[in-house]
């Protein structure tokens, strides 16, 4: 029988032909993948990549939405930080003589909500989740009860909190007064306005509780049994078993909380406007609710300083990225993955 007779055609291909066939198959496969991904790719380019590139460009321009942008180099960044020189009305001036009057105030307010709000959120969610994993009966009812606030629309929830914490007519202060305390003015007092927002955040913490509960229920029971045999008390069980095994969840909620903290907006905007009875451009009361995101929004859409707002947005992006990367780097030291190193 001659060589090759009766052998399927594909096996008679030369190595080059086989390579081409594989390439075609591979291309068909990737073509199909690309086709399936194309809605996302188009969406990403149109709604993310191009706008980001444009906003980066605009951050180096003077752009007021009324006329075409013109290049000003680093002037927006210099104005933000009060560094170097910039050109105002054609005259070169020291940037320090003209700088954003509220940039650092917004940074302070934003860092406050991150430094105070995020750890409290982690702590509150963890403790609540631990409590919710204990009951034997009616557990689903409790879980639903704690998750429900998260389902509330943010605008409605904030308005309810402004009402609840009204210094005179709000039920919270009525109760506090009845038990002999001198309650604060909450959203009318710069000392208490941010804590009031933190309370609102803790109230709507259902999403984090669910994640922590999943993490807690995932801790192997035999570890608890083993440490119990060793005679460990409740704190030692928590410290040596529970806590290490939920560190991935803590890490996740920390990262998400910090990112959300940098972009904090809705609650402050609504609470400030409602309590002050005005379009509170500067974070009433007394600038205490002037967060970075709110200032960025005002610069862009109230004052039409779109170029400067783009610069603010990129600094926000850089800060968020830096904080996230820093947390990622430290996570190797304290995040324990039960399944081994990831």
């Amino acid at each position: 029988m001659p060589s090759g007779a009766g052998v399927p055609h594909i096996l008679r291909r030369t190595p080059e032909e086989r390579r081409r066939a594989r390439r075609r198959k591979s291309l068909r496969k990737y073509g199909l993948v690309l086709l399936c991904l194309s809605p996302w790719i188009v969406g990403f380019i149109v709604f993310a990549a191009v706008p980001m590139a444009l906003s980066l460009y605009w951050s180096f321009t003077h752009y007021d939405m009324l006329s075409s942008p013109h290049w000003v180099g680093l002037d927006n960044y210099k104005y933000m930080l009060g560094l170097g020189h910039l050109k105002i009305n054609g005259i070169k001036v020291a940037a320090a003589s003209h700088h954003d009057p509220f940039f650092w105030a917004t940074v302070r307010n934003t860092l406050w909500i991150i430094v105070v709000g995020v750890p409290l959120r982690v702590l509150f969610a963890l403790v609540t989740a631990m409590v919710l994993t204990r009951p034997k009966r009616g557990v689903n009812l409790y879980r639903t009860f704690f998750f429900m606030p998260y389902m509330a629309p943010i605008v409605g929830a904030t308005l309810v909190f402004v009402y609840l914490l009204n210094p005179t007519t709000g039920p919270v202060n009525i109760i506090l007064t009845k038990i002999g305390l001198h309650p604060p003015l909450w959203f009318y007092d710069p000392t208490w306005s941010k804590p009031a927002l933190v309370m609102l955040g803790l109230w709507g913490i259902g999403d984090a509780i669910v994640i922590y509960m999943a993490g807690l229920l995932n801790v192997p029971r035999e570890l608890y049994e083993a440490i119990a045999i060793e005679g460990a008390n409740a704190w030692q069980r928590f410290r040596n078993v529970t806590l290490p095994l939920v560190t991935p969840v803590i890490f996740f909620t920390l990262v998400m909380g910090i990112i959300a903290g940098f972009q904090y907006f809705d609650q402050a905007y609504i609470a400030g406007n409602t309590a002050s009875g005005q379009n509170s451009e500067l974070g009433s009361p007394q600038n205490s609710l002037l967060f970075y995101g709110l200032w960025l929004y005002q610069q862009a859409f109230r004052f039409f300083h779109m170029g400067y707002a783009a610069a603010l947005a990129w600094v926000l992006f850089a800060a968020t990225m830096a904080a996230t990367v820093a947390l990622l780097l430290t996570s190797r030291r304290w995040v324990y993955y039960g399944g081994g190193e990831r």
Binding site: V50, P51, L54, A260, F265
Partner: peptide, 25 residues
């Protein structure tokens, strides 16, 4: 806490894109 919706920033950027293409017309 919740964050400034990304969509808001995107809308802003797109609005500006639309504006820039029309400038001078």
């Amino acid at each position: 806490m919740r964050r400034l919706p990304l969509i808001l920033l995107l809308i802003a950027a797109l609005a500006v894109l639309a504006l820039s293409t029309g400038c001078g017309g």
